[in-house]
């Protein structure tokens, strides 16, 4: 690009802050996390190397059950988010009058600029026993007694779907925007029914968007703390809550590190598998 005798100075000026950032804040902390996860305190109070923190995870059913539960719910949330978002993205890009397109996509993105905490708080006001939905159900005579709709798995799942919707809708909007209308028109002229068009044309075309949206949603759900903590009940344990408890409540940083590392591994593995299965590059997905 810039041919000729080029000094090395700009390279060093740009490279130094990047290396400092990546090594001091990303690489070394994660190596430290790995090191801490293999340390335990023995009976004499000395720190020794051990895999005990990891064995503890498999020995205590509460830990690996929570882990499995978190992964399972993250899959369910990802699937539900996809099912809800796909028709919306399709409507905005293909069905709605073109002049509304910009307005509708803007409207869609607005809530996600607001802090996750505010959004979860809004749902808490709506769903709790003294909440707004109960107020109306009682007023209209549908219920006699207020029902606690918060603090259960359904509320938590809905909250997680709500929180991560944006990251599914945006990639879907961009892939569907690139879908040529004439493909659908041709299929329709040749006598295809709506389900056939959806399965044979729309979904295959939207696959890159579906894959990248799903990967991001899955990862964010797995690592979410706020929504399960505030909307799920006391028994709806989420794995990040276990990590928090080990760090802040039990002050067992070594055990917490092992849990943290396990979460990091599973999340990276699933992202890697997702990318391989759909033949995509990480650098494409994150954009």
């Amino acid at each position: 690009m810039l041919a000729g005798a080029k000094s090395k100075l700009p390279l060093f000026i740009f490279l130094t802050p990047i290396l400092l950032w990546l090594f001091l804040l990303i690489v070394l902390p994660h190596l430290d996390l790995l090191r801490m996860s293999f340390r335990i305190e023995n009976d004499y109070g000395d720190m020794i190397w051990s895999v005990n923190n990891y064995l503890e995870f498999f020995r205590e059913p509460i830990y690996w059950l929570t882990f499995a539960r978190t992964a399972l719910y993250a899959i369910i949330v990802t699937f539900l988010t996809l099912c809800i978002s796909l028709p919306v993205a399709f409507y905005i890009t293909k069905v709605a009058p073109p002049r509304f397109k910009g307005f509708l996509s803007l409207l869609l993105l607005m809530p996600f600029w607001v802090s996750e905490l505010v959004r979860v708080y809004g749902w808490m006001i709506l769903l709790r026993e003294s909440g707004v939905i109960n107020h109306f159900l009682l007023k209209w005579g549908i219920l006699r007694q207020p029902v606690e709709m918060l603090y259960n798995d359904v509320a938590m799942t809905m909250g997680l779907v709500y929180t991560s919707m944006l990251f599914m809708v945006v990639p879907l909007l961009s892939v569907l925007d690139n879908l040529d209308d004439s493909l659908i028109e041709a299929a329709f002229d040749l006598g295809s029914t709506t389900p056939t068009i959806v399965w044979k044309i729309i979904i295959p075309h939207a696959m890159p968007g579906i894959a990248s949206g799903s990967i991001v949603v899955f990862m964010l759900t797995l690592g979410n703390y706020l929504t399960p903590n505030l909307m799920g009940g006391k028994n709806s344990l989420w794995f990040t809550e276990q990590i928090y408890n080990q760090f802040i409540a039990s002050f067992n940083w070594n055990q917490g590190s092992a849990f943290g590392f396990l979460l990091l591994i599973i999340s990276s593995l699933i992202i890697f598998a997702g990318l391989k299965l759909t033949n995509q590059k990480l650098s494409k997905v994150v954009q």
């Binding site: 804040l25 996390l33 990862m219 690592g223 990040t240 990091l264």
Partner: peptide, 12 residues
């Protein structure tokens, strides 16, 4: 971008 925020927090 692919490291959960919680993990980033504890490792730092």
């Amino acid at each position: 971008l692919v490291i959960p925020g919680v993990i980033l927090g504890i490792s730092i």
